[in-house]
Amino acid sequence: MLDLIARDDQPALRAGVDERLARVELRRQIGRLEQELAGLVSEAFGRIAIEHRLQPAAGEPRVLDLGGLERVRDELAERIGQARLDLRERAVVETYNRELLREVEANPAEHKWVKISRHDVGEPGCGGWHSRPYLGPLGMLMGWWRVKVSSGCPLAGRLTAVER
């Protein structure tokens, strides 16, 4: 019992006395969540678009009250949850595409005309893999299929020539 009385005396347990402590804690949480969201945005860059914008809590800069800070914290947490989900779903698609690519490379004749881009397997850059016949129509008739690997992004000089 003495222990309980002593615990009741602790200032941290006196609810409603100092909202500033709650605001400090919420700001700490916002900092941590912002860091987590930043990491997810970087991870997703070039793979999927992640919604990371929040509704501004205030039109002008101001000291947010508890409600305002909670709104920011909750929205950040929501964005992080959605980003994780989107990334997980994307990872499933990329894994499937990687397995498909392995099969296409192993047996292109069974995967005629299948085209897989680097983006499809979560790799940066342009280009990809394309199952197509060797020597065009002759290869089609003879069943000579191969996987052609794209050489990558077009060079700046070529793009300029196209614009001309």
């Binding site: 912002e34 930043a38 990491g39 970087s42 990371h52 501004p56 205030a58 947010l64 920011v72």
Partner: peptide, 27 residues
Amino acid sequence: AIHMRERPIPWAYRVFYRQIGLDPDRN
């Protein structure tokens, strides 16, 4: 530019923007 928001100083400003009600992806 992509990883900027993960660096300590730009991150510190982003967090402060959030804390004062601004969205660092708009302002």
